[in-house]
Structure formats: structure tokens, C-alpha cells
């Protein structure tokens, strides 16, 4: 396994990235390379900049220094890159007044994918929501709503998954299933970058601890 990994080309490269928010340097000189088939868990205390890093990786926020490369090209404003990213933040983009099916269809539509009925039902079955496909999302629990959004992962052909706290409000069985999915994604050669407070049981899981990239002189003369 490890031999294969070292031979794989680097797809996502973080080169000397620093991010500053509210005048505070969150992390600096961050270096990390993700070859194909990496599942990377970003660690760090609350406020260490995990979400900021994920937003920067998705190309949503500019970095103060350094750059992020996808297959050797900078990711900012790159159509080719956004077509390969699936991003799910800690908010759940699910509309309460649409049904489960409508939400699934709409989110796939936004990603540029037309979902056939059977395919969609299969994805919903993977997150245990196939029986609810006609239910309005306002009647669902928080965990179920999140699973409506997570069902996209079963449809997704994107290479890079960026998931901010995907396990929030998900039950034990759901967590196990999501871990399986992440592993399958890695075996297909995809990359996943996630944050989570849970200890994950994935073979070959990589860790990136943001505490290691804290600036040394951040508070010297504040």
C-alpha cells in the first residue's frame, strides 16, 4: 500500500500557505502534498483555522501567502478545478420546503449532473432515506437533513471531496458507512480532506495538525 502511494503523482499541493483572518495569522508556511488516494483528516483546536483551510482548498477564500495547486495549476477561479470538487460545509444546503427527492435532484443539478430516478433512489437508500423521498425536509431531523446532502457523495464523480465536520448529528451506523465510502473513494484514486472531532478508523488515514503551523511571532507586539 505505502509503495503504491509514494509512486502516485501529487494531485493536490499546498505550497507555503498562510491564512490571516481578522488580522490574526491562523497558520503559516503550511506545506502538504496529497497524492491520489489520500484521505486527509485536518486536526487542530477550535479556532485553529480548520474551516478556513477547507474553504481555501475549495478555492472559496484567497490565501494570504503561498498557493494551492491542483494537478500543477493554481485553483483560484479555475473552472477545471471547481468541476472536480465536491464541497460540503458545516451548514447543510437543504431547503426545508422542498422534498428529499427535490433537494437531491437540485443539488445534483447544481453540480451539473442529471440524476435518473433509479440512481437517485439508490443514493437515498445508502443513507437510509429512500422511504422518505417524498417527505418535506422541514419534517426531518438534523441528522437526516445532513444525510440528504451526504447522499450527493454516492452520486458524485468529483475527484476531490472537501467535507467540514461530515459526521455531525450522524448516528453510529451512518458514521461507519461514511467511513467505508471514504475508503472506497480513496481506492478509486480520489482525494478526501475532512475535519472531524471523531477518531476515524481508516487504513492509511493521513493527519494534518494545524497546531504545527502556528505562527511563532503572532502575538509579539499585539
Amino acid at each position: 500500500m505505502s509503495e503504491r502511494e509514494t509512486a502516485e503523482p501529487v494531485e493536490l499541493a499546498i505550497n507555503g500557505v498562510s491564512c490571516v483572518r481578522d488580522g490574526r495569522t491562523l497558520f503559516t508556511q503550511l506545506e502538504y502534498n496529497c497524492p491520489r488516494g489520500t484521505v486527509l483528516q485536518v486536526l487542530g483546536f477550535n479556532g485553529a483555522g480548520k474551516t478556513t483551510l477547507l474553504n481555501a482548498l475549495a478555492g472559496l477564500l484567497p490565501c494570504s501567502e503561498g498557493e494551492i495547486l491542483w494537478r500543477g495549476h493554481p485553483i483560484r477561479r479555475s473552472r477545471a478545478f471547481t468541476a472536480e470538487v465536491f464541497y460540503l460545509g458545516h451548514q447543510v444546503p437543504v431547503k426545508p420546503s422542498l422534498t428529499v427527492w427535490e433537494n437531491l435532484h437540485w443539488l445534483a443539478r447544481l453540480r451539473g449532473q442529471a440524476v435518473a430516478a433509479e440512481q437517485g433512489l439508490q443514493a437515498l437508500a445508502q443513507v437510509d432515506l429512500d422511504a422518505y423521498h417524498g417527505a418535506l425536509c422541514r419534517n426531518l431531523s438534523a441528522g437526516q437533513k445532513r444525510r440528504v446532502a451526504l447522499a450527493q457523495l454516492y452520486l458524485s464523480g468529483e475527484r476531490l471531496w472537501i467535507l467540514d465536520e461530515p459526521f455531525t448529528a450522524i448516528d453510529k451506523e451512518g458514521v461507519a458507512r461514511l467511513q467505508d465510502l471514504l475508503q472506497q473513494h480513496a481506492e478509486r484514486g480520489g482525494i478526501a480532506v475532512i475535519t472531524s472531532h471523531q477518531a476515524l478508523e481508516l487504513p492509511g488515514l493521513k493527519n494534518l495538525n494545524l497546531s504545527d503551523y502556528q505562527p511563532l511571532d503572532a502575538y509579539d507586539y499585539a
Partner: peptide, 17 residues
């Protein structure tokens, strides 16, 4: 406002459109 609060605006930005 709604699309901002539930993260749909982020999906708009990452959309292929």
C-alpha cells in the same frame, strides 16, 4: 439570506455554471 445561511451560496460558487 436563506441561501447564505444554509450554505447554498457556496454550492452556487462551486457549481459548473
Amino acid at each position: 439570506r436563506c441561501d447564505y445561511e444554509d450554505g447554498t451560496l457556496v454550492q452556487f460558487q462551486l457549481s459548473s455554471e
